[in-house]
Each structure stands twice: as structure tokens, then as C-alpha cells.
Amino acid sequence: MTRMDIVEIKKIVPETPSIKTFYFNYDLDYVPGQFVMVWVPGVDEVPMSLSFDKDLKAITVRKIGEGTEALHGLDVGDRIGIRGPYGKGYELEGERVLAVVGGIGGASILPAVTKAVFKGQEVICALGARTLNELLFYDRFKELSEVHVATDDGSAGYHGFVTDIMEDLLKDIDLVITCGPELMMKRVFKIADNHDIPVQASLERYMKCGIGLCGSCVVDGLRVCVEGPVLKTEELRKLKEFGEYHRSPSGRKVSLKRPKLSY
């Protein structure tokens, strides 16, 4: 690790009305699913997985808070800080992989799918989004794999949740990888587990240090920033908090049950 490096933004691509991709040069040994801490000088530091990990690296950011909003306000030539990569990524085993993606989760999954295809694995992607406009990386996934789409409002693909179309795609699947809202991933886990198919899910928690010290991101004693963010079936099965609640910055439990399954 683990000193922070300053990089210059080389290119910015708007992906959807709420999502932009920021490209930069940064030398690092990255396993898809890992994350970096991104410093917006003077504003905040946020954990992000890389959406592109080839020569140019990139983060794909949805505007959801102060830090991500500040990122959206940056221009080509502006500088941000990067430290990492941290945590464990996807371990792409088996011959046939199903990727179940919700919304911005595509940012973490895209390099994993790219790597799997490059390794010779066959990949099927099930992409979920609120609406057609917010469907992330459809063309990219389509270039690499067989793609199925579900939207909440029916503006593209199946009208409903991506978990509804997942069951039909499980035939001969050796591994399910998933990233998206936690309630979606919990459902993905249950469906795949019922079919005895191993799952790797990328968890998200409020993070402060990112290096396993502060305990902000702990889920049942597991540090999402070190033992995660990608957790496997055996770990997921033991978690009592998975799909149940998050923690606020103060460490208070916040139920996940109330909100929508949406992305």
C-alpha cells in the first residue's frame, strides 16, 4: 500500500444522468472487486472499486453524497488522491459464471467479467436498473457476454427485479458473482444457494480507514475493507447482519428492511 498518490483526471465520460466515469493513470496490481480510497482534496475520501483496470484506470461514480457530488464537479486536469488497492476481489472459478448486477454495481463487476472472458470463462450477465437511462455499461457487457436486462419501470428488458430473471439463467452455472443493493444481493445469495451454486457478493459499508483498524465497516466481526469487500458463500452464510442492517458513521445500526429493493 499504502501511501496516497496524486493522479490527474485524463478523461471524463458521462454514463447515465447520475453516473460518470473518471479515467486516470495509476500503476497498481488490481484484482477486480478490490477497492481504492479516493481523495477529493478538501472535501472527502470515499471507497471505490475500479471500473477499468487496464492501461488507463477508472472509477465510475454515482452522485449520492458530498464526496461523490464533489467528484462529479471535477474537470479533466483536476487532481485526486488514490490509495490502495485494498481488500479481496472476486476469485473467478469454474467454467460458467453468472454476474448479477444492480445499478452502480456494474462498476465493480465489469472488470471481473472482462477478466473472466479473457481467461476463457463463459459469462452471462443479468443487469438490473431503475430505468433504461440508468442502465450502466450495457454495451460493454454486451460486447463480452450474453446479457439479460430487467428494469423497475419496464423501460428496457423484463419489467421487474433482476432477481426475478436470475433463476432461469442458473443452468450449468458454476459461480454467481454479484454487486448491487444489499437486499438484491441477499436475494441473489438465497436463490443461488438453493441451487448449491457458490456466490461471491461485494458488500458495501460506511468506511473510514479502509485498512482494517477503525472497525466502522465490520459486519459480524468481518472487516469489509480487509476480509471483504467480496465475500464468499461460506462467509455470507455466517453473517447475521447481511441484508439486515448497515451502520451509520456513528456506528448505530440502520435497518435495511425498510427501503426498496431498487438500485
Binding site: T2, M4, D44, K208, C214
Partner: peptide, 10 residues
């Protein structure tokens, strides 16, 4: 809630 990030520097 604690301070805004970054909250750690190596």
C-alpha cells in the same frame, strides 16, 4: 459521527 474523511494517513 466523527470527522469527515480522510481520517487516516500512512
Amino acid at each position: 459521527e466523527g470527522h469527515p474523511n480522510p481520517s487516516i494517513v500512512d
